[in-house]
């Protein structure tokens, strides 16, 4: 498997195209159905988890790097991968705790920054 090796020009092109394409799929879902943006976000996270279950998301990240790791389906994938890893290492307890362990960094940063921004800035409307 070809893995992303850093700052080569082609890695940016792949990230741009794959990331953009995933966003286009979401945009088409938004425009062609009655779902709201929040619904589409939930749907794509769920889709990420399902694709991950078929073992297809890991190779996508290996190919596109941030193009697959930055869109929200990666969150669903990280939860599935973390759960499986936990289960393999620690059995049932790992199965329960593995998902959130794998995603803890992102969630903590999001909550911390969200909270801090609310203290610092006011909505401008």
């Amino acid at each position: 498997m070809d893995t992303v090796t850093g700052l080569g020009l082609s890695s940016f092109a792949k990230a741009f195209v794959v990331g953009g394409a995933i966003c286009v799929l979401a945009q088409l879902t938004l425009d062609l159905t009655k779902l709201t943006g929040a619904h589409v976000m939930v749907l794509f996270v769920v889709l990420g988890a399902i694709v991950s279950g078929f073992g297809l998301y890991e190779p996508l990240i290996a190919f596109a790097g941030a193009g697959a790791a930055i869109p929200l389906p990666a969150f669903g994938h990280a939860l599935v991968a973390g759960t499986l890893k936990g289960a393999a290492e620690r059995g049932f307890i790992g199965f329960v705790s593995g998902g959130l362990t794998a995603t803890a960094t992102g969630l903590t940063v999001a909550i911390l920054f969200g909270f801090t921004m609310a203290l610092v800035f006011r909505p401008r409307g």
Partner: peptide
């Protein structure tokens, strides 16, 4: 649209915006 909402930056936006709004 989803070009901004779907990347994880949009997830951060979805947390920060109500936090600010309901301050």
């Amino acid at each position: 649209g989803m070009g901004a909402a779907l990347p994880i930056t949009g997830f951060a936006n979805s947390i920060t915006s109500p936090a600010m709004e309901f301050r």
